Measured scan of single mutants.
Amino acid sequence: MATGGRRGAAAAPLLVAVAALLLGAAGHLYPGEVCPGMDIRNNLTRLHELENCSVIEGHLQILLMFKTRPEDFRDLSFPKLIMITDYLLLFRVYGLESLKDLFPNLTVIRGSRLFFNYALVIFEMVHLKELGLYNLMNITRGSVRIEKNNELCYLATIDWSRILDSVEDNYIVLNKDDNEECGDICPGTAKGKTNCPATVINGQFVERCWTHSHCQKVCPTICKSHGCTAEGLCCHSECLGNCSQPDDPTKCVACRNFYLDGRCVETCPPPYYHFQDWRCVNFSFCQDLHHKCKNSRRQGCHQYVIHNNKCIPECPSGYTMNSSNLLCTPCLGPCPKVCHLLEGEKTIDSVTSAQELRGCTVINGSLIINIRGGNNLAAELEANLGLIEEISGYLKIRRSYALVSLSFFRKLRLIRGETLEIGNYSFYALDNQNLRQLWDWSKHNLTITQGKLFFHYNPKLCLSEIHKMEEVSGTKGRQERNDIALKTNGDQASCENELLKFSYIRTSFDKI
């Protein structure tokens, strides 16, 4: 039985969820670079991206490699990797027998973001014989899940209580170790020597080791999670996991709180800001991140802002960003909400898709409305799209047979046209069989910064309504002859009103 693990408890099935942008060198404390989270699957090609990484700022997932063999891993080693800020997950990587050479110096898994409450997941690794993470000293947050690894031993010899604050939620089941077939031998045991430290858990006094050649490092209890030197002297209180010299914040392997210019500090002093819960960055760093993602459509890219001495992905609820200094300031009234469309555009074809934009005031991208039916549609669209004030790209209304009016965009005031449909149009209306009105132009103002209007096959939309939009939106004169079809717009509506004058002759039985 794995020490510190839980057996036999019912657990939810383990679901495996399925960018080499360097964020800056980590400095003297770390020998390499800070790398983003990685999802490495199918083959070993991307694994080489770990070569210079000291910190993975995010998670590391290595999974679904069915053609790899043990010899493929023999020359692979990433000794610079010290810390993973989120979680480490391995799933069905064939041929991998140990992690001792792959990650010989991995010391800390912070667990800032977890995989279903777990910071370390080893699942269905069919050839893994031992973990071998002999320098792993601290899992700051989260638990361990090690399950269905039929060859995995050296679990009962690990004292997880020396690595985690609590072992109650560890789930370590259905491994070879369960069948008591392992016969784990710690260093020196074969020669009758006791080389590794022994600890007591559940009444068992057991030597602690990761492999037959690597003991588990056990520091004096007084050192807590700070770690200790090879001689057993406690590291500085700002260290986490390990250090090369005692009581020196510049000799830590990793930091308990924050890293700044080669030393570990309790908090980031001005003019620095907390970033990702582990390091200090200056304003320029946060500003660069903001600008890199301002026009990016890459998933996970955030326009970072500053709030409460932190550089964070977005302002919290009730705050909006001051564009001059990136500071989050309290909103006066309802907060603006910028919604970034991942692929640059979004099609609204149902109430469900409209709900995804609920509360958005600025759309960074283009909207395509293609709704053919739905219950209580006008009210639903207004509830979900009615706060949109600005669209950076274009607005396209296409084959939306259920629409009679666009009044559900009740606050839309600006279409920038930074991206144009077919390279020309910022407003595009095609084949809307029941569209009769755009907006009530006596109450609604709309500016279209650039781009043209396109109207074709809107049989109940009168040309007068379209011409009014040209005047109000500032697009009059931009359109070419064929942009607004004269014969297919309003051709099934009563669009022309003329005053009919009647004269009559009164007659009676005795007068003409």
Rank of each mutant, 00 (worst) to 15 (best):
Met137Trp: 12
Phe115Leu: 10
Val121Pro: 00
Leu155Asp: 05
Ser77Met: 11
Pro246Tyr: 04
Asn135Ala: 11
Met38Ser: 02
Arg162Phe: 08
Val34Phe: 15
Thr199Met: 04
Asp159Arg: 06
Ser296Ile: 05
Ile158Phe: 09
Tyr134Phe: 13
Pro104Leu: 01
Met65Trp: 02
Asn105Lys: 07
Leu29Met: 12
Arg297Tyr: 02
Leu174Trp: 08
Arg279Val: 05
Gly333Ile: 04
Gly227Lys: 04
Ile84Tyr: 00
Thr140Cys: 12
Phe283Ile: 14
His28Ser: 05
Thr189Tyr: 04
Phe123Gly: 12
Ile158Pro: 09
Trp278Met: 02
Gly318Phe: 05
Val265Gly: 01
Cys328Ala: 00
Glu147His: 07
Leu174Met: 13
Lys217Ser: 10
Arg256Trp: 02
Asp165Met: 12
Ile82Asp: 04
Tyr272Trp: 11
His302Phe: 04
Leu155Lys: 05
Ile122His: 00
Ile109Ser: 00
Leu44Arg: 07
Asn42Gly: 04
Cys35Tyr: 00
His302Asn: 11
Asp277Thr: 05
Glu33Asn: 05
Ser324Lys: 12
Arg263Asp: 00
Gly241Trp: 02
Tyr273His: 06
Leu89Asn: 01
Cys252Ser: 00
Leu152Met: 15
Asp159Gln: 12
Val55Asp: 01
Cys328Ile: 00
Ala254Lys: 03
Lys176Ala: 06
Leu81Cys: 01
Glu207Ser: 06
Cys35Met: 00
Arg41Gly: 05
Lys67Gly: 02
Phe78Lys: 01
Val218Gly: 11
Asn149Val: 04
Cys182Gln: 14
Thr157Trp: 05
His212Cys: 15
Val34Ala: 15
Phe66Ala: 06
Arg297Asn: 06
Asn43His: 07
Arg92Trp: 10
Asn295Gly: 13
Ser98Met: 02
Asn322Ala: 11
Tyr304Arg: 03
Leu289Ile: 15
Trp210Met: 14
Ala198His: 15
Leu136Arg: 01
Cys264Asp: 00
Pro220Thr: 09
Leu260Arg: 00
His28Met: 05
Ile146Val: 12
Asp177Leu: 10
Leu63Gly: 12
Cys331Leu: 05
Glu33Asp: 14
Leu164Tyr: 03
Thr250Trp: 03
Glu57Ile: 07
Lys148Val: 08
Gly32Asn: 14
Glu266Val: 10
Ser77Trp: 08
Asn308Ile: 05
Thr267Tyr: 14
Leu120Arg: 01
Asn105Ala: 06
Asp288Ala: 13
Ser112Trp: 11
Asn117Met: 12
Cys228Val: 09
Asn43Arg: 07
Ser225Thr: 11
Asn195Ile: 08
Asp184Val: 15
Thr157Phe: 05
Gly32His: 05
Pro269His: 00
Leu152Arg: 01
Thr211Ala: 15
Asp247Pro: 01
Gln287Thr: 11
Arg110Thr: 04
Asn149His: 02
Ser225His: 10
Gln287Trp: 15
Asn257Phe: 06
Asp261Cys: 01
Leu50His: 02
Pro187Asp: 10
Asn43Trp: 06
Thr329Glu: 01
Phe205Thr: 14
Cys219Val: 04
Pro270Ile: 12
Phe73Val: 05
Gln276Asp: 15
Asp169Ser: 05
Glu151Gly: 14
Met38Phe: 02
Lys100Phe: 14
Asn322Ser: 10
Leu29His: 14
Cys243Met: 00
Phe116Gln: 07
Gly318Thr: 06
Leu164Trp: 03
Leu60Arg: 00
Gly111Ser: 02
Tyr134Trp: 14
Asp247Lys: 08
His307Pro: 01
Lys224Cys: 05
Gly32Phe: 11
Leu88Cys: 01
Ser225Gln: 10
Gly203Met: 10
Leu164Lys: 12
Arg162Tyr: 10
Cys280Trp: 00
Asn170Gly: 06
Gly183Met: 05
Thr85Ile: 04
Arg110Pro: 01
Arg297His: 08
Pro70Trp: 14
Cys234Gln: 02
Cys215Tyr: 11
Val108Leu: 13
Glu180Gln: 13
His28Gln: 08
His59Asn: 07
Thr329Phe: 11
Pro197Lys: 09
Tyr87Cys: 00
Gly183Asp: 14
Cys280Ser: 00
Tyr304Val: 04
Cys315His: 02
Ile185Tyr: 06
Leu99Asn: 02
Phe283Val: 10
Leu60Lys: 01
Cys243Ser: 00
Arg110Gln: 12
Phe258Val: 05
Ile84Glu: 00
Ile163Asp: 01
Tyr94Gly: 03
Ile82Lys: 06
Pro79His: 06
Cys311Tyr: 00
Phe66Leu: 15
Lys129Gln: 10
Phe78Trp: 02
Gly300Arg: 11
Thr140His: 11
Gly333Pro: 02
Ile109Asn: 00
Thr68Val: 08
Lys129Ile: 08
Leu120Pro: 00
Lys129Pro: 01
Tyr304Leu: 05
Val121Leu: 03
Phe258Ser: 05
Lys176Gly: 04
Arg263Ser: 00
Arg69Met: 07
Thr329Pro: 02
Ser296Tyr: 15
Cys153Asn: 02
Asp248Ile: 03
Gln299His: 12
Leu88Gly: 00
Ser213Val: 10
Thr140Tyr: 06
Asn150Trp: 05
Arg74Gly: 02
Ala198Ile: 12
Lys191Phe: 14
Arg256Ala: 10
Gly58Met: 00
Asn117His: 08
Phe275His: 08
Thr107Pro: 00
Leu136Gln: 05
Gly37Ile: 02
Pro104Arg: 01
Leu240Lys: 04
Tyr118Asn: 03
Phe115Thr: 04
Cys243Lys: 00
Cys209Lys: 13
Cys286Val: 04
Cys228Gly: 02
Ser54Arg: 14
Thr250Phe: 07
Cys228Trp: 01
Pro271Met: 03
Ser161Ile: 06
Cys228Arg: 02
Gln303Cys: 14
Val34Ile: 07
Asp247Leu: 07
Ser166His: 06
Val108Tyr: 04
Glu147Gln: 14
Cys228Ile: 03
Asn135Tyr: 02
Ile163Gly: 01
Ser143Asp: 10
Asn322Gln: 11
Leu326Trp: 03
Ile139Trp: 00
Pro330Arg: 11
Glu207Val: 04
Pro79Asp: 05
Val200Trp: 03
Gly32Leu: 12
His290Glu: 03
Asp177Thr: 12
Ile62Thr: 01
Val173His: 15
Ser317Glu: 10
Leu96Asn: 01
Cys311Ala: 01
Asp39Met: 11
Glu151Ser: 06
His290Ile: 04
Val144Trp: 01
Tyr171Trp: 10
Val144Gln: 01
